[in-house]
Structure formats: structure tokens, C-alpha cells
């Protein structure tokens, strides 16, 4: 096996392994998404209005129960998630939404990790490529002689 192949294979193997793990982790599980699933997901994105640090899905307050019923009713009536979230944000203010929107300062929250990931990836790729391109020093005959001499001492 050549030297370059020995260098590439572990990296390639790691890349394939990471891809398989990522696909496995992100692969959608379960069957068809029901309206109850959608209501539960939506409830998890709304802050419980009368409790601290809980979303509507996890809270047991009367308000949270009412909101869960309301979400289900609205989804059944044909409203989509964005419309419902918008309606809640209009009544309660943006703080009712647990996930920041993609506009204004919210774009930083979503965009920055992606940007840093891309920059990091580019950096690592360039570093690996330039490392593999760099000429390897091979000992000359006089170098060997020097080493021999030094060992002989």
C-alpha cells in the first residue's frame, strides 16, 4: 500500500463513519405524523404563560392544558403551525415562542453555528490538503553517513 493511500484511508473511513452516524441520527423514525403529534410538537415550541421554565407540552397548568386543546382544535380546523405561532405571538408577544425566529437577531442564533461549522470545515480541509501536498524530506547518502557516524560514537 502506497504512503498516500495509507494516509487517505483512515480519513476516508472516518468520514464514511461520521456520515453513516449522521444519517442514522437524522433519519425520520416512526410512521405517519398525526395531528396529535403536530399539536404536541407545536406545544413544545410555546412557553407556558403562567409557569417558569416550562413549555406548554410539559406544563400541567390550566392555561397550558387550554393551549394544548386550542392547538389541536386549530390544527384540525386546517391552520398551519406558522399561522398558529403567529397568532400566539400577536397575543402574548414574541416571548411566548421558545425558538427564536429567523429574522433580526434570531438569524445569529441559527446562522452563526452553521457559518462557524463551514469555516471550520474549510480550515480543516485546507490544512489536510496542504499537509499531504508538502514535500517529504528523504535522507540523502551524506545524511545517512552523518547518522552512522553519530551512532558509532
Amino acid at each position: 500500500m502506497s504512503l498516500s493511500a495509507r494516509r487517505i484511508i483512515p480519513g476516508l473511513g472516518l468520514f464514511v463513519l461520521m456520515t453513516v452516524v449522521a444519517v442514522w441520527a437524522l433519519w425520520p423514525t416512526g410512521g405517519k405524523v398525526t395531528i396529535n403529534d403536530r399539536a404536541r410538537d407545536l406545544a413544545a415550541e410555546l412557553r407556558c404563560p403562567d409557569c417558569e421554565g416550562l413549555n406548554v407540552a410539559d406544563s400541567t397548568t390550566t392555561s397550558a392544558r387550554s393551549i394544548r386543546k386550542d392547538l389541536l382544535r386549530r390544527l384540525k380546523a386546517g391552520e398551519d403551525e406558522a399561522e398558529i405561532k403567529n397568532s400566539y405571538a400577536n397575543r402574548y408577544g414574541e416571548s411566548i415562542l421558545l425558538n427564536p425566529d429567523g429574522g433580526g437577531l434570531g438569524i445569529l442564533v441559527w446562522g452563526l453555528p452553521v457559518l462557524l461549522l463551514v469555516l471550520g470545515g474549510v480550515g480543516i480541509t485546507i490544512a489536510i490538503m496542504s499537509r499531504s501536498r508538502s514535500t517529504r524530506l528523504t535522507p540523502t547518502e551524506s545524511d545517512r553517513e552523518e547518522v552512522k557516524k553519530a551512532r558509532g560514537k
Binding site: 404563560p49 403562567d50 390550566t62 392555561s63 392544558r65 387550554s66 393551549i67 386543546k69 386550542d70 397575543r91 402574548y92
Partner: peptide, 13 residues
Amino acid sequence: PDSRAALDFATRG
């Protein structure tokens, strides 16, 4: 019942 009005008025407590 069901805190319907409380929800419509967006009360938090």
C-alpha cells in the same frame, strides 16, 4: 371553563 377567556385575553397569571 377551560380558561378560554383567560387564554383569549392572553393572561399569564
